[in-house]
């Protein structure tokens, strides 16, 4: 009985040490779990906050990013978006909808021969700019396309 109690106390102590280290900022939870869902970025309410959480503030406008999306989307619940980045060394493509409650929609990391291209379908609450941020090397590039939405896709 007593021995179990000792080990329990020990392990509890060890666990709280980690918690303290995390709280003190010694260990960043993000660095411990690299592939973990980026909650702060997805929860960000506005474009500036979302860009900040992604570390993409001050991205340069680029004409080498092509966004293929309809000019007018009849149904905001399904808006096809196709992104092609001609920038060499594209390592990540981020799709954001500026006027959605949470702008960050999808973050694609590409590696091992994956081309600077992704295609998906997204929801848009209202007419808005779709903003794409591309990371290549240490730099960020961006482009926008406006999509007019006649029936919103969020809310019921």
């Amino acid at each position: 009985m007593n021995a179990k109690r000792r080990t329990f106390l020990k392990s509890a102590g060890a666990a709280s040490t980690v918690a303290v280290a995390v709280a003190a900022g010694l260990i960043k939870p993000t660095s411990v779990m690299a592939a973990e869902w980026n909650k702060p970025a997805f929860d960000a309410k506005g474009m500036p906050d979302a860009l900040k959480a992604l570390g993409s503030v001050g991205a340069a406008d680029s004409k080498d990013i092509l966004i293929k999306a309809p000019d007018i989307a009849e149904n905001g619940a399904v808006v096809p978006v196709e992104v092609t980045s001609k920038i060499a060394g594209t390592s990540s493509i981020v799709v954001m909808v500026e006027k959605n409650a949470n702008p960050l929609t999808a973050d694609f990391n590409l590696m091992n021969g994956a081309e600077g291209y992704v295609s998906t379908r997204i929801k848009m609450g209202q007419t808005s700019n779709v903003r794409v941020v591309v990371k290549a090397g240490a730099k960020s590039y961006t482009a926008v396309k406006e999509v007019k939405v006649t029936i919103g896709g969020c809310g019921g």
Binding site: A35, W37, S119
Partner: peptide, 29 residues
């Protein structure tokens, strides 16, 4: 996440704003 012959090629994080029954297209050189 997507792998080709066990090697990772794409890792994506999505929000709730991706459409129902999601579609994903990508190309691997």
């Amino acid at each position: 996440s997507a792998h080709v012959n066990g090697k990772p090629v794409l890792e994506a994080q999505w929000s709730q704003a991706v459409s129902k029954n999601p579609f994903l297209g990508f190309k691997v050189k």
